[in-house]
Simulated scan of single mutants.
Amino acid sequence: MRHHNTFKLYLTGRESDGITETLFRKTVAAFNKRLAESKADTVGFVLKTFNR
């Protein structure tokens, strides 16, 4: 049995709730900054946009 230390993070937002694409991208950037400050490895992170 192999164990993988991986997990998925999902950030979601809807324009109908006032979350514009610009605001969402700023939020992702701030989140990534916090991860970098904690020395988290974000190399494998992928930003995907659904239902545009």
Rank of each mutant, 00 (worst) to 15 (best):
G44W: 11
L23A: 07
S38P: 05
H4R: 05
T27N: 13
T6H: 00
R52V: 10
F7K: 03
G13T: 00
V43R: 15
E21W: 01
L47S: 09
T20W: 01
F24T: 00
T22L: 01
L11D: 02
E15K: 03
T42Y: 13
G13F: 00
L35Q: 07
D17N: 09
D41Y: 10
G18K: 04
K48Q: 14
L11S: 05
R2N: 08
F7R: 04
D17M: 07
E21D: 08
N5K: 05
T49Y: 14
A36I: 09
R2G: 04
F45C: 10
V43T: 15
K39S: 15
F45M: 14
R2F: 04
N32Q: 15
N32D: 11
K8G: 01
K33G: 10
A30E: 06
E21F: 00
R34N: 11
H4L: 07
V28N: 00
L9D: 03
S16A: 09
N51R: 13
M1D: 06
E15P: 00
S16M: 04
K33W: 01
N32P: 04
F7Y: 10
E15N: 05
L9W: 02
L23S: 05
K33P: 05
F7I: 06
A36W: 01
T12I: 09
F50Q: 11
E37S: 14
R34T: 11
N51H: 12
G18A: 06
E37L: 15
G13A: 03
R14Y: 11
R52I: 09
F50G: 08
D17G: 03
L11F: 08
F50M: 12
G18E: 05
T42N: 13
L23Y: 04
I19R: 03
T49V: 14
A30M: 07
H3P: 03
G18V: 06
T20F: 01
S38T: 12
S38D: 14
E15F: 03
